[in-house]
Structure formats: C-alpha cells, structure tokens
Nucleic acid binder design. Structure first.
Lengths: 380, 380
DNA sequence: AGATTTAGAGTAAGCGCTTAGATCGACGTA
DNA sequence: TACGTCGATCTAAGCGCTTACTCTAAATCT
C-alpha cells in the first residue's frame, strides 16, 4: 500500500530528454510539437504515471478551475436522519445538475453545507472563497451582508435566490406562475375557498414568492380567503407540527397550501394519522415535486420545480460571470409545471403535468433571460 | 460587481511594514509574534480583506487538504429525474457524513459522479487524483483495475466496498447480519417459505453480501427455498420491472426480498397497481432504510444501514491513511438494525427497530443469528 | 562587564507548473 | 554566400505561499 513517489513534470522532461515546456505542451496539446517528440513524451508519461499537480497548475495559471457549491442544511445531526433528511432532497438535486455541467468542462466542484450559524459560517465561506473561482450559494440562509462580502471577492450566483435583490446573479424557479396556477386550480376546479398557508423559513425567497403569489390570487377572488398560516422550516417535521396545530383549531380549512413538498408530506402524516380524510375533508398541496410526494397517500398535487436544471443553469451563469466579471447582475427564472395528483381533490389515479407559461406581473420583476446558450468559450 | 483586486501576502506585509514570514505566522498563530505586531497585522488583514490563496498554500505545504468523493450515478439524465433519482439517496447520505467530518477539520471536499462508462471515467479519476490528498470511492462500479491504479498514487478508501478484497481500506455495513436477521424474521415470525430475490448490479458488493446471507439462511432452513430471482440496478424502475416479471409468473412467491429499498419500492408499485395485496398475498422487504420506504403503502420492512455513518467513518479512515500510508488495509463493518414495519406481514402501524449484534463465526464470517427473542409480540 | 541565551523578525529558497521570449537549425531567397 | 523566415524547442521568470535559517538587540548569566 506504499504510494509511488510523486512524479513531476521535471521527471518526465528529463526522462524524455526534452524541456518542461515541451512536456507541458504535449500535455495540453495546444502548441505544435513534432510527432516523434510528442510520442516519446506521451510514452514516458504513461510509463511514469505522471499526473499534473493541480495546485501548481492553479498557481501558475491564476485559475483554479474549481467552483464551490454552498448548500443549506437545515438539519441538526442530532435529529433522526430519516425524518429531517427530506429537507435536503432539494440540494441533492441541485448538486447533480451542477456537477454534471461542471464535469463536462473539466472543472471540479467543492461542496459545503451551512447551517443557521453565521458566526462559524463566515470564516468558512471566506476561506472557501480562496479555494475556488466562483461560488454558487443556495437561497437566503447565508445572510446578505456575507453574500455582499463574498461578491466583492469572487463571482457568485444565488440558487433559488431572491429575484428582487440585485447583489449577484440569481437563478430561480418561476414560483409566481406556479403558485398562481395551483391556487387557481384549487379554486376553479375544486371550489376551495378557505386556504391555510404553511410558510417556509423567513429567509427563503422561494417561500415568500409562493406566499405572495397565493395571496395575489386570493385577493383577486373575493370569496376566497387566507384562513390562517403556520410557520415552517421546509422540513417534514415542521410540516407535521403545522398539521398538529391545524388539528387543534375549531375548524379545518378547505386546503392546506404548503410552501414545499416536504412540509406537505408532514401535514399529510399528521392529518391522516388523526383520521382526517385527505382530500375529502381537507386538501393538501405542496411545491417542488420531489419524488416521495408521488409515493405518499394520497399522492401529492404540487408544482414541478426543475431543480436539477436550476443547478445546471446556475453553473452556466457562474462560468459566464467568471469569464466576464463586469456584466450587470442577471436574473434567470425557469418555467414550472402544474402537477395534478389526488391530494387536491382530483380523482384517484390522476397524474397530469401541465407546463406553465410565465405570467408577467405588472412589476415586471422576473424577466427571463434569453441567453439560451451562454457559451463556455473563452473559459477553458 | 467589479471584483476587488486580489490581495496577497505581500500586500499585507508591506502595508503592515513586516515581512511575509511574520504575516504567515500571524495567520497561522503558531510561532511567537509580539502582541502589538500581531494586532497591526490582523488589522491590515481585515482592512484589505486578505484571504490566503489555496493553490499557493497547497503547493508550498505539499498538501492540499482536500479529499475527493467518487459517487455512483446509475441514472441516465435522459430518464425522468424523479424516478431514477431515488437510486441516489444512498450517496446523498454518504456525502453528508463525509462533508460534516471533513468540515470540522478545515479540509474541503471535491465530489464527482461516475457512471458505468470506465473509458471516460479513467482519465477523470486520474486527473481528480492530482487534485486531492485522498479518495473515497463508492462501491464496485469503478473497476478494480482502475482502483488499483489509483491506490498506487494516493490513499483510497472504498465506501460500501467489498470486504473480501484487500486492495484498499473498506468501510461497509454489516450486510450479512442484517440480511440474516431479516430472513430469519420472515421465516420465524411469518412462516414465509418461498423467497424471491431481487438482485443489485453485478459489481455492487452490498448486493452480493446480502444475497449470500439470504442464501445461507435458506440453506439452514430445509423447508425454505429460493423460488427465483431477478436482476436489478438498485433503482426504482428496475424494481418495478422485476415486479412486472413476477406478475407474469404462474405463482407468486411468499416474499420478495430486495437487495435495496429503492427496488422494493418499485416492486411494491408494480404489485399494488396490479391489485396484488401486500403483504397479504406476498410480502416485500428491502434493505438500507431510506426515508421514502417509511412513506409508501404499506410501509416497508427493511434493514437500517447507517449510511451517513458510513461516510463519516470512511472519512476518518481516509485521513488516518493519509497520515500513515504504510498501514495494512483495514476493513470496518458497521452494525445494522432490523426495521420492522408492515410490508413483511407485521400488523399495520408496526414500527420496531431492533439493533443487531454481529455474530462472528470462526472464519470471521457471521454465523447464524441466535434469534435472541424476536418476540412474536406485536406480530399477528 | 563580557558572554550567552532568547524573543522577535527578516531573508530567501523552494513547491511544480505555465508561458513569454530567446535560441537554433534548416530552408528559401536574392 | 549572406540573410531573413519559420517551426521546434529551450530558458527562465514568475505564480503566492511556507519555513529553515539567519540576524539583531535585549535579557540573563557568570
């Protein structure tokens, strides 16, 4: 198990009787090198098992070809993993989108999770910023002051960030259209009137966008109302708690509109365990379309959030920003789909996906970027 | 959005009127520096927003303080993400264990996914090995030849690797004890006799260990038999396919014993959609105890695999190996728990976790579990 | 007082790579 | 023959840090 001694460019050069410059050229295949020389060098590289040292490359090129992904971990490791882990499904999916994109370019990905604790997070994030060329930061849990400090050091893209703030590039789902379509479906197709909203963490832009959209639909339908709302943390347990609170009320609402699927699953658990029939006595809907939502009973009606794509686009945007640091901040908002299953009152077995077209709000806030192909050219 | 010019150690040194060595000492707090000097330097660091460049540090220290995690992605991005993503839950959990451990030490984590495709994976993995101090590799999908080449370059720990091979350190769940306990429960508590096994990918050591353990229990119970088995890929869809195959058979087995939960969920879907009653007509059990298993209908009986802990221990082992490259290869096997819910025939609402003690046989293999009071209590 | 230790700080040699600019034949041209 | 040209290759200066070693002056010892 002893490791082979590390092989450097010099070893290869002297063995192949060429200069280090030539070896470097062969490795990168850019400049012209005589075929016979190239062959000899390649042979020595294979023989010696040479692999370039990334630290030296990064130092010399002044570019690390690494990006950092900062995910939110709302869980305490002390909690049962299998309950709380649910709140992580979102970033797992973002991660895969990012990794796939970055991989194709030959860059690498460094990942870290942050919790609520900004005191210990700040130094970690600053130090991370010294290890990467750019940072992808998940939604609002990194405080804006910290984001601002990072932004002045290196390129940053906010994933599921607040489309209203312009501190950095933002990629987000079109929460507004999705939540409005869902609310309208509940009202129009099922005649539901009394809405209860289960909110997300205070600093999660997704949650507030969804809440705002719901409210605007309710305002437009005078016979409808928000009969109440509960706080939540985007996790199954916090959804279950909201469900308990609901059960203690004198009257159930017509529908529990949850800011994400994890909480909807929690609400569903509380309600069905207490013998409440869903959707007959009360409908429950979520947002995001995570896999377990299709598994629960009744299957969850929700809005599809293209989470993986969110990761992919964020990554593309970041690479583009690394290449051109001077562009103005951009917001990219991705289309969602309405996913009708039976927890809203649609008949059992329903499984309809309805693509949604963006509804432009008068504030014109979320304007889609048309930069379809941000070419990674000029980056490599 | 213009970035501040990068601040180097020299900038800090000249601004604070000290040498770079002194600044470096202040940053690392090791050597003695006069308090007044330290204060001045710290002030300049804060003022200038200095963050050390990791590439230069790594080059100079000859250590990157980064480890790589190689996960298996059995999915094709072309498939519906929400179906196939399930097979990834395992590595998501490993990742969290690894990240939490590495983070506490101030190291960083680089993550990459590999698919079946070793031709494009080999160069990627070799190049990754130039960017990290050690590698954590998920189970058997990286071919042994490649693992061997990596091992001679840098420290490697195999996560959920084959405990029988000794090419590198291995961390694995005690699959044998877990699968045996589950099989014995099915036989003893529910009188099931005809077993169907849904296998995992050919190169997944977890799957074969579980199969072996099941077989050894069946051999020890002459009235029991393996009535058949199906191939599978650890994913929900492959489980659903196995379920379809089963439905085409003239006779159903007593129990479908799946090599992991994802496939059990797939089998469950196929079966219940075809109107087969689980567990009344046929029991279905899985392995790993991923969260969605507790959500499905009926809730899945399984074996708890301490996946996150797997990641933590693997990480610890790797760091230890980086410090001491000459140790002989080690195998660490973590205890599992039997998780009884109702898909095995236990009454609805059952939710029992039974910690399992490894039973070591003379050959180092686990021998038959003394059915140390698997109480018929709570079991019809 | 002179010698010796020591705390505090500086000097400079790398770490392994990239790359601008220098070099060097061989070849073509006047 | 003398002189440019050009492709192939080499030389060497960094990149931003760490750290072994050196230096200085003040503290301590004999």
């Amino acid at each position: 198990m002893r490791q082979l001694p590390a092989v450097t460019l010099y070893d290869v050069a002297s063995r192949a009787c060429v200069s280090t410059a030539t070896v470097s050229r062969v490795v990168h295949g850019l400049d012209r090198v005589k075929d016979s020389t190239r062959a000899r060098v390649l042979e020595v590289i294979a023989e010696l098992g040479y692999v370039p040292d990334s630290a030296a490359q990064s130092l010399s090129r002044r570019r690390k070809e690494v990006i950092g992904l900062v995910c939110v971990e709302r869980t305490s490791p002390k909690l049962q993993y299998d309950i709380e882990a649910m709140s992580l499904l979102f970033y797992d999916e973002v991660l895969r989108g990012v990794e796939a994109t970055i991989r194709d370019l030959g860059w690498s990905l460094m990942i870290t999770y942050v919790n609520h604790d900004s005191e210990s997070d700040l130094p970690r994030l600053m130090s991370l910023s010294g290890k990467v060329d750019g940072l992808l930061i998940g939604e609002g849990i990194v405080p804006p002051e910290i984001v601002a400090r990072l932004v002045e050091r290196i390129p940053v893209v906010l994933v599921a960030g607040n489309p209203r703030e312009r501190v950095a590039d933002v990629v987000t789902a079109d929460n507004r259209t999705g939540a409005m379509a869902l609310a309208e479906h509940l009202i129009t197709a099922h005649g539901l009137r009394r809405f209860h909203f289960v909110d997300g963490p205070a600093n999660a832009p997704d949650a507030s966008e969804r809440r705002r959209a719901l409210m605007s639909v309710l305002r437009a339908n005078p016979d409808c109302q928000l009969s109440g709302s509960s706080p939540g943390l985007f996790s199954v347990v916090s959804g279950a708690e909201a469900g308990q609170l609901l059960l203690a009320e004198p009257q159930l609402p017509d529908v529990v509109f949850c800011a994400n699927d994890q909480m909807a699953i929690g609400v569903l658990q509380s309600l069905t365990r207490a013998g409440v029939a869903v959707p007959d006595q009360v409908a429950v809907v979520g947002f995001d379309d995570i896999f377990p939502g299709s598994l629960c009973d009744p299957p969850l009606t929700t809005v599809h959030n293209p989470i993986r794509l969110l990761g992919e686009r964020a990554c593309t945007l970041l690479l583009d920003r690394i290449a051109k640091p001077d562009l103005r901040p951009r917001v990219e908002s991705l289309p969602t789909e309405l996913v009708l299953r039976s927890s809203c009152g649609c008949p059992p077995g329903t499984n309809i996906r309805r693509p949604l077209q963006r509804q432009r709000g008068r504030s014109g806030q979320a304007k889609t970027l048309t930069s379809r192909a941000l070419p990674a050219a000029g980056i490599s």
